[in-house]
Design a protein around this nucleic acid. Structure first.
Lengths: 334, 334
DNA sequence: ATGAAAGCGCTAACAA
DNA sequence: TTGTTAGCGCTTTCAT
């Protein structure tokens, strides 16, 4: 019942060697006689020893662990992070990377200033070697805090202020350009937009890219109604746009949910989508694209880079990847 | 640059006391002079010391960590766990419980036998004090492995074989009964069912509960077509049912996704739902219920119990909770 | 190639 | 109430 877990010392006794030798075998250090290696391995097998992690961590000063921080939301919203078309892929890619290296992700939530401090402390205790931050806040203070605590960090999203932090993010501007090009290519003449809440930088970037694409084609700035990223706000915005611009034949919505709302309103009013009015969203979410067509591993290269950064190696690089469905991911390594 | 993190020893020197006293203050042990407490706290503040976790863990033999194991699926499917109407609530409830106790969840995936062994080793290394298993496998070997390794475990779902393991699960049978009662109460005369894949115990339980409810009302066994939990299979099953039983006016689908597929087929064929044909699903997922009506914290009491078990206390209890929308959760503590 | 021994930073039993 | 001391189990020089 109260039997302690076998230690390397037990194995050493069993094998008739020293603790140091057992440690060498366990850690794959060379300079160990193959016969003795075999001996030790058997002894480990027999005793069922699993080297204590805390003891190892204490001396190596590595936890073999990274903190996966969901910043700006409590655990009730953890789901979002895993379902979000961008975060979901990025997170599961990162998890796969960690797993291949026997590193473990600890889930932390940083929705308040106190929680943010706790997160920093957690790492400073040596509980994690670095952090991955998934942030949904426009101007999150956490990245700066991690930076000044000299904690190896990779941010999924871009920091509000310019900071020397590695990050992975969608290229919102380029995505916006694509949507503009798409509507132009379809031959739309009366193009409008449903924008994101104005305080979200990402939303602004999408809109700017969209506008620029139209401008380069010689079009005048499109009418824009601001939405709140919800289905209902998309429907409301579409209603407004139709009232003010009855001839509209192309709509850019800053996310898929609003695009969906817009489609509903259009169809209710007897418009065919996309024959009468073309609607393009943003997010590559499941409402927009048939499942079999989605690029499930699209963000892999970006993640590999991010993963490397997490592993506390910091290669100098900057690159962009383009996925099958034009999901554009950029990686900055600071 | 290479400056080490300050230790309790540093704080002790700074405060002019012994390391033990600092430890006592940090751990909130009483019997420490208030003045000295103040002194020590200031010293901690000044030095910015964060007590090393590995060192503490080494001597206390506690990691203050639990493993959150997703069994039967790789990280690509992690999303499911957080989105699933049952698992999602249960997991976020458990996370909240842990957080309030400054315990940390490590995310592990056990989709292969090798991965399962790694999970067991991870805990035996002392990296976690216990595990929460979210299993989607019908007959998962992991619970038994954890049991025989004497690892404190709470299973979300029920073990395939009867085993003395604490678990939290929906009461599928009772849920099935409810759906049957619902269709009967609506006055349906020609009731049919779209069942779950036969290898899933939970699905069988739902169906059995449903059948028993009908039987108790004196109805003969309903026609059943087996589905695969997908939208398409629900649609296909509904098509079959309508062909063989044109007068059908009530349908039980073993999950909401199939119910949705059934609704689509019915509407395409000009049937009104629920006026002509009543359809009831299972899962309390967002497709079925308006968001504002969902019991977001419905599983809280069950979780509290589960959380207590996780925390390695094992109160003898067995209870059932009924949520606003008849989500029934049972807790077994083994 | 192997062993002896020091010590990582902390807690806890024992002394004072 | 406080300090002294002995480990926790491991890695890692330094001898051999």
């Amino acid at each position: 019942m109260n039997r302690q877990a076998p230690t390397l010392e037990d194995v050493a006794r069993e094998a008739g060697v020293s603790r140091a030798t057992v440690s060498r075998v366990v850690n794959g250090v060379r300079n160990v006689d193959p016969d003795i290696q075999e001996l030790v391995r058997h002894a480990i097998e027999r005793t069922g020893c699993t080297p204590n992690r805390a003891a190892r961590s204490l001396v190596t000063r590595r936890a073999e662990t990274v903190a996966l921080i969901v910043s700006g939301a409590g655990d009730a919203f953890a789901a979002r992070v895993f379902v979000d078309p961008f975060f979901g892929r990025v997170v599961s890619g990162a998890l796969g990377y960690l797993r291949a290296r026997a590193m473990h992700p600890v889930l932390l939530f940083a929705e308040s200033q106190a929680a943010r401090k706790q997160v920093v402390d957690y790492v400073r205790q040596g509980s994690a070697d670095g952090v991955l931050v998934v942030s949904i806040l426009a101007d999150d203070p956490l990245p700066e805090m991690l930076l000044s605590a000299r904690i190896p960090t990779v941010l999924f999203a871009r920091p509000g202020r310019m900071a020397p932090i590695s990050c992975v993010d969608l290229d919102h501007y380029a995505g916006g350009e694509l949507t503009g090009a798409h509507l132009l290519a379809r031959g739309c003449r009366h193009i409008t937009a449903i924008s994101a809440p104005s305080e979200l930088q990402a939303g602004q970037d999408r809109l700017t890219g969209f506008r620029d694409a139209l401008a380069r084609a010689g079009r005048r700035p499109p009418p824009v109604v601001e939405g709140t990223f919800t289905l209902d706000s998309g429907a409301a915005a579409m209603t407004t746009l139709l009232r003010d611009h009855p001839r509209v034949d192309g709509v850019f919505a800053a996310n898929d949910l609003m695009a969906q709302g817009a489609c509903q309103v259009l169809r209710e009013l007897g418009k065919r989508v996309p024959e009468d009015v073309a609607v393009v969203g943003f997010d590559d979410s499941s409402v927009a694209v048939p499942a079999h067509a989605r690029p499930s591993a699209g963000a892999a290269p970006a993640l590999r880079a991010a993963g490397q950064a997490c592993a506390c190696r910091w290669p100098r690089m900057m690159s962009a990847y383009r996925c099958p469905l034009d999901l554009i991911v950029r990686v900055w390594v600071g």
